[in-house]
Simulated assay, not measured.
Amino acid sequence: MAEELGHQGVPEGEQRANVAAAVQLPRAAETAALHRVARRRQREAVQRKERVDVRYSTAEKAAIIAKARSLNIAGAHYVGAVVMAHLHGDLALPGQRTPLDDYIDELTALRGEVAKIGHNVNQIAKKLNSGGHALPGDTALLFQTERTLAGVSTAVRHIAAAANQAASVKAAG
């Protein structure tokens, strides 16, 4: 039973799809968060004069301008705000490791450790059920072992669900 705890009989891709469907962030919240980041960039007393030249494809530029217009700000203001937000740690670049990545890794490791406990409890139950003469207290110990295994199974499912939810949030972000 403990070997099954990590996957719960559902292919991992399907688990992610099911969790992703249940955890979708509303588009309005994403837009509001981006608008907040874009508005954080304060005007300075003197005009900004330094330039950084960047090249975009036609499609990239169109996407930048469209997003800036949807936020009612200039394209340069949008790009500047996003870059400054990243520099201040508010945004991560694609492929960049984030605290959410660490959280997902910790949950995955925790799930593995708790599943090992379940395996050990299974070994105890197997020994108790192996026949022979029952000792006083074996019935109570077996009952407690079954309860512990059920608790471990529940814990592994919750940890896996939390890891999948965090991965879905990361993928959506």
Rank of each mutant, 00 (worst) to 15 (best):
I104T: 07
H77Y: 05
D138F: 03
V121Y: 03
E113M: 05
R43Q: 11
Q24T: 07
Y103R: 11
R40H: 12
A85C: 07
Q42G: 06
R40Y: 07
R97W: 14
N122S: 12
T154E: 14
I73N: 07
L93F: 13
F143T: 14
A45H: 09
N122G: 15
H35W: 11
K61L: 15
A20V: 00
Q42A: 15
I104W: 05
A45K: 10
R69S: 12
R111T: 01
H158F: 06
A45C: 05
G80Q: 13
E4Y: 07
R39Q: 14
R55F: 11
D102C: 03
A62L: 12
G132S: 07
I65F: 05
E12C: 02
A45M: 05
A66S: 09
V10M: 14
E3D: 13
G137R: 02
R147G: 04
G173V: 00
S168W: 01
E4W: 05
I159T: 05
A74L: 11
V169G: 00
E106P: 00
G151K: 13
D101Y: 03
A38I: 04
L87G: 14
T31H: 01
G75V: 00
G13F: 12
T98F: 13
H88K: 14
A66G: 07
A29T: 02
A171P: 00
E14F: 09
A28H: 08
S130Q: 12
P99L: 07
I117W: 03
D101F: 02
A2Q: 02
N120F: 02
E44L: 13
I104C: 11
V52H: 11
H7I: 02
E44Q: 14
V19L: 07
A109R: 10
V54H: 10
A59V: 06
D138K: 00
K61C: 04
A17T: 02
V82I: 11
Q15E: 14
L93V: 04
I73D: 07
R48Q: 10
A172S: 13
A45E: 06
L34D: 03
A76G: 10
A28G: 01
A38V: 13
P11Y: 10
D101N: 09
E50G: 08
A21Q: 11
A74Y: 08
R51W: 11
G6L: 15
G75Q: 15
G80K: 07
R39A: 15
H7M: 08
A20L: 05
I73C: 15
A22N: 06
N129P: 00
E14W: 09
L110A: 13
R39S: 13
D101P: 01
L149F: 08
G151M: 11
K127G: 08
H158Y: 12
S130M: 02
S168R: 01
E60M: 04
G132K: 08
I159F: 01
Q15C: 05
G95F: 06
E30G: 04
Q144D: 14
A66N: 03
R55T: 15
Q8S: 09
Q144I: 03
A81Y: 07
A171M: 06
H158V: 01
